[in-house]
Amino acid sequence: MRQIVWLLFCREWRLAWRRPGDLLNPLVFFALVVSLFPLAVGPEPSMLRAMAPGVIWVAALLATLLSLDGLFRSDYEDGSLEQWVLSPHPLALMVLVKVLHHWMMSGLAMVLLAPLFGLMLALPLSSLPVLALTLLLGTPILSLLGAVGAALTVGLKSGGVLLALLILPLYIPVLILGTGAMDAALQGMPVTGFALWLGCLAVLALTLAPIAIAAGLRIGVSE
């Protein structure tokens, strides 16, 4: 069991590094959206500070959604997914590894970049750890929920819009909690409550989403 997890991780790693373009796309998108805002609304620090949590969270959310559309598609098209479904190993475990790997390449990188963008949007230094923490708890939820949609739309030629329609409503609680925590931090109020809620959702997504993803892929493969 441990061996298959490790081998799958190595496989995903190799695939990602041999197509670095796919790896960079969501990050470039994230960076572009965040850096376009100050140009559009003007460099007034108080205004930027008020908008910063929302801008960073919405950019992270859309970047995740964009990158997830193709998460299973190439494996579906070349028949790899059939072999996964047929394997005696639990499919839910394999998709969890795949999604977590994808998160490390996109979500985690965004968590690391976010404080820099926070500074750019005039956020005070004291709020940057909160930004990084809420993104660290929130982006895995975005990846896992998005992967459920990606699994359900895997057989469709262009599932992008459908994926967004399916998944965006589910992203709303994460968005509200994430930006709520940032607003609280900016006003000097405690953020523990928000962080705990995000933690709860992350645990829930980690335990339940892989089962839903596996079920979605089974349906996709049997079409």
């Binding site: 190799r14 695939l15 070349d78 028949g79 059939e82």
Partner: peptide
């Protein structure tokens, strides 16, 4: 072994 050979081009 199906129609699609499950062979990844990048590997």
């Amino acid at each position: 072994i199906g129609h699609a050979p499950a062979v990844k081009g990048a590997l």
